[in-house]
């Protein structure tokens, strides 16, 4: 036995390293699982909330483990039994549906946003009408993800020939806003429908073109504490902070609007 160990010192070292890493990882998780407002909060949030929520957790000193993806993907995970503490979506219909199905507590609308047409800063595109031209490639959200549904709502408000021409220019249907921004900043597409906050977050690399006000969809964000959350107290604190305090400040700084009154 001993001789074998001596013959494979590197293998032994590697195994030991693996054991230490695995044990360390497990230990850390166990200690922090306490149901207190100051404990770890697991947040599943829409991709578009990433800059604001990251800034919020930093400013408020919240130990938040946040995962950002398309709101519909995160909602589907909750339906499959994943229980984060907080679910925050880029629309109200997804959290409302989960509330009806008793997966989450009553959702709270905490912010609004504006859908815009995003283009590279040096682009020739000035309005939604320019998207009908043959040589334009467009990225939009896939069906089901809020940013994709809003974009389809906008196109549905255009005359049919115009919206058909624009849809024919769609080169990629992305799972979330991060995908659309990625395609835009890599020059893979010429334009994409995202939120104004996503454009603000690119620090001038992209430019936002406002949509005609009669086409602008109402974009409202809702958050809810997830039923079966490990840290409901921390989840409550996180959601309350979105309405007033550090969360609301971070949202405003990122370009979000306040929730509609009433």
């Amino acid at each position: 036995m001993l001789r074998r160990v001596r013959r494979h010192p590197r293998l032994v070292l590697l195994s030991l390293l693996l054991v230490v890493v695995v044990a360390g990882g497990c230990g850390g998780g166990e200690l922090e699982r306490v149901g207190s407002p100051d404990g770890e909060v697991i947040v599943s949030a829409a991709s578009s909330l990433q800059p604001a929520f990251t800034a919020y957790a930093d400013a408020a000193g919240i130990d938040a483990k946040q995962s950002f993806a398309g709101s519909d993907t995160l909602g589907a995970q909750i339906r499959q039994g994943v229980t984060p503490d907080v679910y925050a979506a880029a629309n109200t219909s997804l959290p409302d549906a989960l509330y009806e199905e008793e997966f989450v507590e009553r959702p709270v609308v905490f912010a609004t946003n504006t859908l815009v047409l995003a283009v590279p800063a040096d682009a020739d595109i000035d309005s939604i009408g320019d998207l009908t031209s043959d040589d334009i490639a467009l990225a939009i959200g896939q069906e089901g993800v809020p940013v994709g549904d809003y974009a389809r709502e906008v196109l549905g408000g255009l005359p049919p020939d115009q919206s058909d021409a624009i849809l024919a220019n769609v080169g990629s249907e992305e799972p979330d806003v991060a995908g659309i921004i990625g395609k835009l900043s890599q020059g893979a597409v010429d334009a994409g429908f995202v939120y104004v906050t996503d454009v603000v977050a690119t620090d001038g690399a992209l430019e936002a073109i406002d949509l005609p006000s009669d086409l602008e969809p109402d974009v409202a964000y809702a958050a809810a504490v997830v039923n079966g959350a490990e840290n409901p107290a921390g989840a409550d604190r996180f959601v309350q902070g979105l309405l007033e305090g550090e969360g609301a400040d971070a949202l405003e700084a990122a370009g979000f609007g306040p929730p509609p009154r009433g």
Partner: peptide, 22 residues
């Protein structure tokens, strides 16, 4: 990217339908 018939392969289609139609 991901677009039906052009670039949406089976794994991408699975991911795209995962959220709306498990």
């Amino acid at each position: 990217g991901s677009f039906q018939e052009i670039t949406q392969t089976a794994p991408l289609a699975i991911f795209a339908t995962f959220a709306t139609d498990f």
